[in-house]
């Protein structure tokens, strides 16, 4: 093979290698979760959501270029008290029938620091809750686990990307009982995301 043929082939190979991978966050193990906490006088309201999906484009060679969208099914939000859950899903609070999804679409990363397979950054994107979209900057931790998919899901080969994020939102920014029940339920909501996405290799 002539050198003139090898150079374009090498360039193509490098380009394919450096291409961002698509990680699917529809977890086959169903353990992806988001946890939320609201302070209240008797005891804090702690709940979780499991209906997580979405995709993230991540390039291990260039984590700063990460983009993607994570979707949480509003219906999957749950709290241990059945009456509180009914109120949470109802028209006066999240109105899950009208607004079935809570989303965060990451558009850019800043302050990116990578050590080994762990990248920390501030992700800026659009957070949509209760039909209201706001620009948010959220600290995230990305852990890239090369060839670890088979250890988690047998019969599947590929890589894993774990995303962890902890941040606070104000329910009033999203028109959820604005100015109401502040003495009973805190206007701030602590959110904690812990999710793993898979990039399957064929």
């Amino acid at each position: 093979m002539k050198l003139t043929h090898i150079i374009p082939l090498l360039t193509l190979t490098t380009a394919v290698y450096a291409a961002p991978q698509t990680f699917d966050f529809k977890d086959p193990k169903g353990v992806n979760n988001a946890v939320f906490k609201l302070d209240a006088p008797l005891e804090s309201i702690n709940g979780s959501a499991s209906g997580i999906s979405g995709t993230v484009l991540f390039d291990p060679e260039n984590p700063a270029a990460t983009t993607g969208k994570i979707i949480v099914a509003s219906e999957s939000l749950t709290v241990p008290n059945p009456m509180q859950k009914e109120h949470l899903h109802g028209a006066n609070w999240l109105d899950v029938a009208k607004y079935p999804e809570i989303t965060f679409e990451a558009k850019s990363l800043a302050n990116v620091k990578t050590e080994g397979n762990v990248t920390t950054a501030d992700a800026t994107g659009t957070f949509t809750l209760h039909g209201v979209s706001k620009e948010l900057t959220v600290p995230v931790k990305l852990t890239y686990l090369k060839d670890k998919l088979s250890a988690r899901v047998p019969n599947l080969k590929g890589d894993l990307l774990v995303i962890r994020a902890n941040f606070v939102i104000n329910r009033e920014d999203f028109n959820i009982q604005k100015g109401q029940y502040e003495d009973k339920v805190s206007p701030t909501i602590d959110l904690s995301l812990s999710i793993a996405g898979a990039s399957v290799t064929k």
Binding site: N33, V35, A151, R152, L160, S194
Partner: peptide, 18 residues
């Protein structure tokens, strides 16, 4: 409460599992 949640750590991802 009608349900309780416990946490564990998944060995591969070291992720919180509910």
């Amino acid at each position: 409460k009608t349900e309780v949640q416990t946490e564990s750590i998944e060995p591969v991802t070291e992720m919180r599992v509910l």
